[in-house]
Design a protein around this nucleic acid. Structure first.
Lengths: 224, 224
DNA sequence: TGTAAATGTGACGATCCGTCAGATTCCAGC
DNA sequence: GCTGGAATCTGACGGATCGTCACATTTACA
């Protein structure tokens, strides 16, 4: 439910959003921009990246393609803006990571992290997978957007691994930053397709519990 | 180096390859088809998925777009064929997984697996990331292609985890299939961007060693 | 209410898609 | 080596999307 006063028109970027000619956007402009972004994400869920057409986005918003180009130079830019919005939901997950990972409390912490991460991907899967592809294809803006979400997670995880080192919980051959990256990579990939894995043999609960245990074992090692 | 006698024109699929009207392909046709596939993969490396144009593929092969459509109904189908070819390099990795994972020998086995997996991704990254996107976007053919490469790996890994269970190396709460999927997911994701992680702080060797240890710890647990 | 800024659009040339009829190349059999 | 039919290739075309521009409409506010 949105009120007219506190209308949600997007994250950081939207506040400074400008039209293609550089002028700052007014109330109506911001609303239109947001509708384009919503339509972009919807179409990304419904059809694939390659089938994403400016015409379709404009049609869904009920406007003409020409209008679209007043807000974005091309589809990629709209997709990028959607991707940047997804960064806003990361801080709560980081908070779950910070704290004590020792023993059973740590295992429970691991479960919370995994659940939060799965939930995050379930909400944003359409844009996240596209963002990651673009990042891997070398687009610097998308790479920066991915970094903005993964760095806080990796840093927090790295911090815990460093602590585990100091406590002697895990072997010295495990490089904290490398391990943090590996664990985040695991979470990211499973987040992307855990729903495809869940069948009769493997349930959502199995995936969460097992992933949490791998995570905990790696971060807390012999702490129990 | 290719001889005229034993010309490599592609994997399984190519042998049964037919033109769009159903006729089987002759010698020249198979060669042309292979050139289209090579050009497709090259362009996938050089430009992105969204920029992949039939015109460009045809131009690179030195033929007209019309010719392309005699071999494939659209770009997706050519991309799919390239993806299916990449399955051929999987068996050697599976062989590395099979065997005893206990103790230091197991750790060494883990290293071999990680190296082999990284190498596999380095060779095929362009097509693999596109294949995975298409699979996640719901395309059944791409999903099947991914399954064809990941299932042997996951099954082999699952087998080792089951064995670890039986030996009491790892806790019962770790579900073998779920854990196998998680580990393969980790390998896949790190394979996709380990080169972006490797900087002054983290070297290729760090990534291999750390990933191998996470892998070994999860598969062999307290076996040492 | 009037006016300037903000926002939206029709129309257009360029490019790509996918198809088809017809041209060109290959090769087996004479 | 010649030839007819099969295999392969292509020019040309209608349809669709892209991205741009000059101009129309709406909004904000004095």
């Amino acid at each position: 439910m949105r009120s007219a006063e506190a209308e949600d028109i997007g994250g950081e970027a939207a506040a400074h959003a400008v039209a293609q000619d550089g002028r700052p956007l007014g109330r109506r402009g911001l609303r239109t921009r947001r509708r384009f972004l919503d339509a972009t994400e919807e179409l990304l869920r419904e059809t694939g990246l390659r089938e994403l057409r400016v015409v379709d986005i404009a049609r869904r918003v009920g406007t003409s393609p020409a209008t679209f180009y007043q807000y974005f130079t091309n589809v990629e830019e709209a997709v990028l803006a959607v991707a940047e919005d997804a960064t806003a939901d990361i801080p709560p997950i980081v908070e779950h990571i910070e704290g004590d990972w020792a023993g059973d409390a740590g295992l429970d912490r691991a479960r919370k992290v995994v659940k939060a991460f799965f939930d995050y991907w379930d909400r944003h899967y359409a844009i996240l997978r596209v963002r990651n592809l673009a990042a891997e294809e070398g687009d610097k803006r998308f790479r920066a957007a991915r970094m903005a979400t993964l760095k806080p997670l990796t840093d927090a995880m790295c911090d815990r691994l460093q602590h585990a080192h100091d406590e002697g919980w895990i072997p010295l051959e495990i490089q904290p930053y490398a391990a943090a990256a590996a664990l985040v990579a695991m979470l990211e990939r499973i987040g992307a397709y855990h729903n495809q894995l869940e069948r009769t043999e493997v349930t959502w609960r199995d995936m969460v519990e097992t992933t949490a245990r791998i995570l905990h074992q790696t971060v807390a090692g012999q702490s129990a």
